[in-house]
Design a binder for these strands. Structure first.
Lengths: 145, 145
DNA sequence: ATTTTTGCAAATCATTTGCATATAT
DNA sequence: ATATATGCAAATGATTTGCAAAAAT
């Protein structure tokens, strides 16, 4: 869970101006439960008359991804999506049933990346780990997809 | 490096028919040095008059990805690409300068995934690890981007 | 006052599809 | 002979862009 203040604060800290569309978008992103697409945000913005338009959504998500406030996700289906991130987590595990996602603590991945770097001779700059599966609630049928 | 025979063999083994476009595409994919996009294949096919058209390229890459002969890649830039795979490797490290890629042996990743599963309570079905960095040759400036 | 941001609609880009024809089995 | 695969060109879908107007600093 990331709150709207945090998202808005990230815009501000990075020197972007605080505008109404960005305020609305921050709330919108913060209210998302799992991953979401640009298009979903657009639909919700329209339904709730938030006055955030398509171009602004794409432009803002772009900025937020730069700032590390959201992470771009490539679902196994090939669709693009985003998730809001705690700044600490660099990876996510995504539930393939309900779409909710959880930040993933390191758990030795850094070590794996280093070891791969050593073995292949690459100087590794970035890595992305995306995990997909069923969250605990969905495993027990406690939740609707 | 994956050779054209292997790719063609994968089509055959899975019950797909051997056609001229598929033969040409197999050679084309096998000749790729790093990652490549559908569009790059199309351009090369046209330049060399291979007679493999857009639709066939997309359809075939789709099949090959299903069969695990190529892997879909999502570059940090957001672009989509593919790499030919040895069937054993499930992940790739990609050089951000020359685009070449190498299959990545496990190196403990399975263990990391399991441990993340245990910690989060998710039942993990798939994971993708993509690593980006500079390959040994590019680090030493031995190679043009 | 100046710079940034926005909305709009059109443009672009990648990918997919329908359907008639050609090809492999 | 039958099923599968292809080419073509059009359709789709997502994202990006140019530009004039609006809002933030």
């Amino acid at each position: 869970m990331v709150d709207a203040e945090t998202i808005l604060g990230a815009f501000e800290a990075a020197g972007y101006r605080l505008t109404d569309p960005r305020r609305a978008l921050a709330r919108l992103v913060a209210s998302q439960d799992g991953h979401f697409s640009a298009d979903e945000l657009l639909t919700e913005s329209r339904r709730a008359r938030l006055g955030v338009t398509r171009a602004t959504i794409f432009r803002s998500l772009d900025v937020l991804a730069e700032l590390g406030v959201v992470e771009r996700l490539d679902l196994p289906s090939g669709e693009h999506a985003f998730v809001a991130c705690e700044p600490v987590h660099h990876h996510h595990i995504v539930c393939s049933s309900c779409g909710r996602s959880t930040g993933v603590p390191d758990h030795g991945l850094e070590g794996v990346a280093e070891s791969i770097g050593r073995a292949t001779g690459y100087r590794i700059d970035t890595h992305r780990l995306e995990l997909f599966g069923l969250c605990p609630e969905c495993q027990q049928g406690k939740r609707e997809p």
